[in-house]
């Protein structure tokens, strides 16, 4: 199983969900596969789950999905007990675990290539629905369930390393443009103004 085919399967499931991404190949591939205004492509590691949890708490009627990588989750493990204890029912984390820091271009192994199991860590943190999936059909099933359930989910997808993201056109919107597209989308779909934007 590779990440791109998982994202290809996920893209048609989008309705009004909100997505946050960390910096890694899935940011590029997800942006290429969808032009969903509910995508917030947080372009650095370690922030997608936190921003997603904040959105999930502020908008309990919206499903929020954080698209993560093993390296990014390992960088921000404090998110796991917080996610477990807050347990926002509208929050899903999908971790594409390829076992390497592919951005290094030397495929330096992450801890998940060694002794570390992110699903067990999530369970140990207290996330009740933490699962590992290893093939595409399993992924489709878990993703479909996660988009429709009412509890926090943590899905670790064991994927092969690929270089698809290096052959995929990169996002051309900067963080500010992406933020305002996202916020205006929320204003339209939530029917309310986002206070910080204010008046000019």
């Amino acid at each position: 199983m590779i990440r791109y085919e998982c994202l290809e399967a996920l893209a048609p499931m989008i309705t009004d969900q909100l997505f946050t991404t960390s910096q890694s190949g899935q940011r590029i591939e997800w942006n290429h596969l969808t032009d969903h205004p509910g995508n917030l492509l947080v372009g650095n590691m370690g922030c997608a789950i936190g921003v997603g949890v904040g959105l999930a708490l502020a908008l309990p009627n919206r499903k929020v999905i954080a698209l993560e990588s093993d390296g990014s989750v390992l960088l921000s493990l404090f998110n796991l007990p917080t996610l477990a204890n807050l347990d926002p029912p509208n929050m899903t984390v999908i971790v594409f675990d390829n076992g390497v820091y592919s951005g290094t271009r030397i495929s330096y192994p992450t801890a998940t290539s060694g002794k570390t199991d992110l699903t067990l860590m999530a369970k140990g943190a207290g996330i009740q629905h933490a699962v590992t999936v290893s093939d595409l059909e399993e992924f489709k099933q878990e993703a479909t369930t996660a988009l429709n359930n009412d509890h926090a989910s943590f899905i670790v997808c064991k994927v092969d390393e690929t270089l698809v993201h290096r052959e995929t056109p990169r996002p051309t919107t900067d963080l500010a443009e992406n933020k305002y597209t996202f916020v205006r989308y929320l204003e339209r779909t939530e029917g309310k103004a986002i206070p910080f934007v204010g008046r000019g």
Binding site: L55, L186, P195
Partner: peptide
């Protein structure tokens, strides 16, 4: 990061 997400979702 959680506060940032909440602000984007309409909180102060």
């Amino acid at each position: 990061t959680i506060a940032a997400g909440a602000v984007l979702g309409g909180k102060q």
